[in-house]
Simulated assay, not measured.
Amino acid sequence: MATTLSGRTGLVTGGIGRATAAALAARGATVVIAGRDAERGAQAVRQIEQAGGTAFFVAADLGDERSARALAVRAAELAGPVDILVNSAGVFPFGPTEKTDEETFEQVYALNVKVPYFLVAELAPGMAARGHGAIVNVTTMVAEIGMAGMGLYGSSKAAMVLLTKSWAAEFGPSGVRVNAVSPGPTRTEGTAAMGSSLGELAATAPAGRAAGPEEIAAAIAFLAGDEASFVHGAVVPVDGGRTAV
């Protein structure tokens, strides 16, 4: 097992979190995985432990400041001060603007923007006080390109693009690097409901296929590690070349 992240603790929320947690643990980090599904969480922990890593699962229904701060506190209780935060959890309903109700709007911005904001608010000051840390936000290619029916999701992730840059300016001088990964179409349990449309969307990019979650996780792990020590405020596209066309 690689040890480039040995002695560090990472907190990973949902989304591509399972593959990300495995990637961080494979590099020696102790990982806290947060999610709603306890069975899936237990499976992720077993997978990491069987590979020789250390992981914990915290059942968390994230949606507001209280839940975000409580998760951050619990992660530190289980594994020690958090050195790496990966904001991967997200919800992505697609559809026409005129058919979006207020409840859906609030849910998207609560999980995609509010929760990461208050996780950073809770954890980044401690990282800064210790003089080191890495935060990686997971955005999306539709945060930067207009696509019909994806305005709500894309706009919430566009907010995270700006927050990534703002937090880099705010916490970078104290040794905390803040960056983002912008995935293209990726095959996960969450995107399975998209069916063939995911592959059709992916086919428009040079790679001509959807990504596997481990391909996104590899970029996240790079940004979390010392190999990216001079990378601050970057939004790294991992989208099969969609930014090239």
Rank of each mutant, 00 (worst) to 15 (best):
A72R: 08
V82E: 04
A21P: 12
A79W: 02
A25I: 00
D101Q: 02
A75T: 08
G131R: 00
D83T: 07
R27C: 14
E65N: 00
E65D: 05
A44C: 11
S67G: 07
V120T: 08
E98R: 03
G17D: 04
G14M: 13
L24Y: 02
V120I: 12
V120S: 09
Q50L: 12
V73K: 12
A129E: 11
K114L: 15
G7V: 08
E102M: 01
E49Y: 13
F92T: 05
V31D: 05
A25T: 01
I33D: 06
N87M: 12
G14Y: 06
L62S: 04
D83F: 04
G52N: 05
L111Q: 00
R18F: 10
R40G: 15
E77A: 09
V120H: 12
P125I: 10
A70H: 07
S67I: 00
G53A: 13
G90E: 00
F94W: 04
A23R: 14
G7Y: 11
P96C: 00
E77Y: 10
T104A: 08
R8G: 02
L85N: 09
G28M: 14
H132M: 02
P81Y: 03
L85W: 06
Q107F: 04
Q47H: 13
L71E: 06
T13H: 14
T30I: 10
V45P: 15
D37Q: 04
G53I: 02
G41K: 11
A55D: 04
T20S: 01
D83W: 01
E98T: 01
G17C: 00
G95E: 02
A75E: 06
T100E: 05
V108C: 08
G35K: 01
G80V: 02
T104I: 03
V32Y: 13
Y117I: 15
L11Y: 08
A19S: 15
E106T: 15
A70Y: 05
G53C: 04
T54R: 14
F92K: 02
D37T: 09
D37V: 06
E106H: 08
R69P: 15
S67K: 01
L119G: 08
E98A: 00
E103W: 13
I33A: 14
A124T: 04
A79Q: 00
V45K: 14
E122V: 10
Q43R: 14
A75S: 10
T97N: 00
P125D: 09
E49G: 05
G90F: 03
A51T: 14
S88G: 04
Q43N: 15
